[in-house]
């Protein structure tokens, strides 16, 4: 999703990204994702990753948006998002107060399958499919750990990589949201 911002993405990637995580509860209605994505685009906010799915109540979806906040006031993002009629509430999740996960599926070279298994088992991953020279592996972990896992798999030959973008929940003992809007 980093392409959503066109040139903005290029500029940000040239620097070290400053990632913030927002969790938004939105009405599960036609076009809501387009409204959110369109808002980020026209306000010049740079989406790093985005994950959307219905909540336990199918009338609502939960969107986890990771934003590169270079040159952007974090509270502006939350306030502008909150103006969307279909956004019920929005909060920022600080990494130190949150649990985060991301899922990765990858097709990797696996002439030496045991070596691949060695790598991914360190991250709790598993082999979902394999042939003589290739495997599809699945790893679910904190996104920083996934980055590391990805780097370790690269020497085997990383043929296809799909990551989901992170999802996050506030940790059980965390304090109240930093940016609580329209509760």
């Amino acid at each position: 999703m980093s392409g959503a911002q066109g040139d903005g993405a290029v500029v940000s990637h040239a620097q070290e990204p400053d990632l913030h995580i927002f969790a938004a509860i939105v009405e599960n209605k036609f076009g809501v994702l387009a409204r959110v994505a369109g808002l980020f685009s026209r306000r010049g906010f740079n989406i790093f990753s985005l994950a959307v799915a219905p909540t336990d109540d199918p009338a609502y979806s939960r969107i986890t948006i990771v934003v590169d906040v270079h040159n952007t006031d974090v509270t502006q993002i939350a306030k502008q998002l909150d103006k969307l009629i279909n956004v019920i509430n929005i909060s920022e999740l600080h990494p130190s107060d949150s649990v985060e996960r991301e899922l990765m599926l990858a097709r990797v070279g696996a002439v030496d399958l045991a070596a691949v298994v060695d790598v991914i088992s360190e991250y709790g991953g598993e082999v979902l499919d394999h042939t003589d020279d290739e495997a599809i592996v699945s790893v679910s972990a904190h996104p920083d750990r996934l980055d590391r896992c990805e780097r370790q798999l690269r020497p085997f030959g990383l043929h296809v990589l799909q990551r989901t973008g992170r999802i996050a929940l506030r940790a059980l003992d965390a304090s109240e949201p930093a940016v609580g809007m329209a509760s």
Binding site: G31, G38, I85
Partner: peptide, 16 residues
């Protein structure tokens, strides 16, 4: 129309 006007309205509706 709803796609085009999303960025220039406070809100819009497609009646279904």
């Amino acid at each position: 129309t709803t796609g085009i006007t999303m960025a220039v309205t406070k809100h819009n509706y497609l009646v279904t």
